[in-house]
Nucleic acid binder design. Sequence first.
DNA 1: ACCTGAACACCGTTCAAGT
DNA 2: ACCTGAACACCGTTCAAGT
Lengths: 212, 212
Amino acid sequence: MAIAATPGSRAARHSRDDVAEAALRILDDYGLPDLTMRRLAAALEVQPSALYWHFPNKQTLLAEVAERIADRARPHSDPRLGWAETATAEAFGLRDALLAYRDGAEVVSSTFALGLGASTPLTRLRLAFERGFDAETSTRAATALLHFVLGHVSHEQQRLQYDSLGAVPADTERLATGDAEAFAFGVGLLIEGLRHRHASASTGESAVSEKR
Amino acid sequence: MAIAATPGSRAARHSRDDVAEAALRILDDYGLPDLTMRRLAAALEVQPSALYWHFPNKQTLLAEVAERIADRARPHSDPRLGWAETATAEAFGLRDALLAYRDGAEVVSSTFALGLGASTPLTRLRLAFERGFDAETSTRAATALLHFVLGHVSHEQQRLQYDSLGAVPADTERLATGDAEAFAFGVGLLIEGLRHRHASASTGESAVSEKR
DNA sequence: ACCTGAACACCGTTCAAGT
DNA sequence: ACCTGAACACCGTTCAAGT
């Protein structure tokens, strides 16, 4: 049934990028539980073992997928903005990116917890906080905020699909805005807490006076 | 080799509690990836299918396990304490409980994300915040704090086992105190943020003046 | 009430071999 | 450089049947 992509050879030939992109599609269309090596191979019209030429194991593949999801987050980072506005924008940008793919938050969250990939969002948040604080404070604040974002959006996304296949047709509009509000509340809490810890110990800069 | 527990019958006979407790042991001794239905059955000297008389599926079993881990958190909650001290104590108590079992944080985190079990920690945190805030604010603050705790401890625990089997023998003491400090920082941020949002909108009580 | 036996429909990963 | 074929060592779950 299948037509060989390159005539003269027996099977489809793919790049590492092809594999990652196909994985992203399966994830978005069918969800994380359906993203198996065998299924991915089938989608690429290839034997499962072929995937191991491109990636050493499934975990590495997932890390690559996570990075592609997270890297979709590109909030317009205005250099004139203060740390609080920048970090808030980064947090919301990341949330949007995670919500853009089915099970996006869980993929990023799990690979982040494993210490693989997903370093980009952490770095971006850290840079935002470094507009007002020393390195250690910024790292800790970024970590705390990232944990909140990943946990919140995972939860949110999980509930979204649960609702979509069960019980009430669900007042989607209302739920979504409720989630957004709760998210904003959480981000605001972290930011506000940091604001009242003003000024770092190791730099001479004052974090109280924000630019703009 | 195995001696039948009840002579006259062919296989061991267990209660739902036995199964959950055995699962907890396997989790703690070998980790979450090794907690399979087949392995659990073997530990109980029973066929895998026997487990399905006690639990409808693995997810329900894991939810029960998560609840038992989380319910180990029993910080001495002094009724004279204010919301901030109470919530902080709850957060640290929960961290201790999660750290007490291998992969404890991940088990609780994943079942919480799925909307099953793990409601006890959320409730306890909510009650703490209700000493100073209205219901909605308390729920949101509790959710935010819980997400941070689960994310942080998952990460922390993951790194602990990774280090334990790799690279450097690791300066365990130093790492552990570093984690505790970062944890305290995160919790403090949330609490501080909430403090500056003082007083709820729907109750007449003031949250600024804390008891004690 | 609690378990067996047997099956179903899957997994991730390895590795020699092919082109 | 990229893939096949075949195997290894597993999974969770169902269900009729046993005691």
